[in-house]
């Protein structure tokens, strides 16, 4: 069951720089696909193309089962409205969809609670830590109960502990809601941990260099210490080295 298929995507910026060339990949329903690559290999552009925010100069974005009603997008920065409280930030997509205040607030509260932010509904972004801001941002992406979650290096600015914890939470949320995730990262550890499938991009112009499918094993806080994880990491590292 393919949710999203990118076929032969090429993109050239107006300044002539070729960001992507002939990228084809598919995201299956309920799958977490990691896009791994060095900075400047067009990962973010590919994600924006998938979201429909950028029209590719070549190729096509296809939705075999129809474009999902809701897509969630998490940026590299929390990208919150500094003047709005956590609850208002999370409720924003519902507000844009025209939902009544009572309903959107109830759903935003539930989304915040799912990210462990119960009690912080009234907090302003500046009153929260970097990790908490990112949780608000993820809650905002999940509040519409999207079929697809697009994440653009969401944890790149966080410390290792916060990042590991959020990685676990992403897997838990994915398991609980059956949401498909296209996860862009430049972190080997993160991709080896999260991915059901891993696509390695080679830079300038961005193109698919390798694709790894990992065994479906349950992951959790202890998984990083297992030989299974070490094998994944070694495979991912080898693929990334070969690509760059």
């Amino acid at each position: 069951m393919t949710l999203l298929r990118l076929s032969g995507i090429g993109h050239r910026f107006p300044n002539g720089v070729e960001a992507l060339a002939g990228v084809s990949l598919a995201v299956a329903r309920g799958e977490l696909l990691c896009l791994l690559g060095a900075s400047g290999c067009g990962k973010s552009t590919l994600l924006r193309i998938a979201a429909g925010l950028v029209a590719p100069t070549e190729g096509a974005v296809e939705w075999p089962e129809g474009r999902p009603r809701e897509i969630g997008f998490v940026f590299q920065d929390p990208t919150l409205m500094p003047w709005a409280r956590a609850l208002e930030n999370v409720a924003l997509p519902l507000r844009l969809a025209g939902l009544a205040r009572a309903e959107r607030e109830a759903r935003a509260e539930a989304a915040l609670a799912a990210l462990g932010l119960r009690g912080f509904e009234r907090a302003l972004p500046r009153e929260l830590s970097g990790g908490m801001r990112m949780r608000v941002s993820i809650a905002r992406a999940l509040v519409t109960e999207p079929d697809l979650l697009l994440m653009d290096e969401p944890f790149a600015a966080l410390d290792e502990v916060a990042r590991m914890r959020l990685n676990d939470e992403i897997l838990a949320l994915k398991g609980a809601r059956g949401v498909s995730v296209l996860f862009v990262t430049h972190s080997l550890l993160e991709s080896a941990y999260l991915a059901d499938r891993l696509v390695v991009l080679a830079p300038r112009p961005g193109r698919v260099a390798a694709e790894l499918r990992f065994d479906a094993v349950p992951r959790g806080p202890g998984f990083r210490a297992t030989p299974g994880f070490a094998t994944r990491l070694a495979e991912a590292t080898a693929a990334l080295e070969a690509a760059s």
Binding site: R48, A51, G52, L53, I71, F73, F75, D77, T79, M81, L92, P93, R95, L96, A97, T144
Partner: peptide, 17 residues
């Protein structure tokens, strides 16, 4: 913020919104 503008676009915000 350009990313926030993208987010508004992604969720189909009207000009007025």
């Amino acid at each position: 913020d350009p990313n926030l503008r993208d987010l508004f676009r992604l969720h189909g915000a009207t000009r007025w919104q």
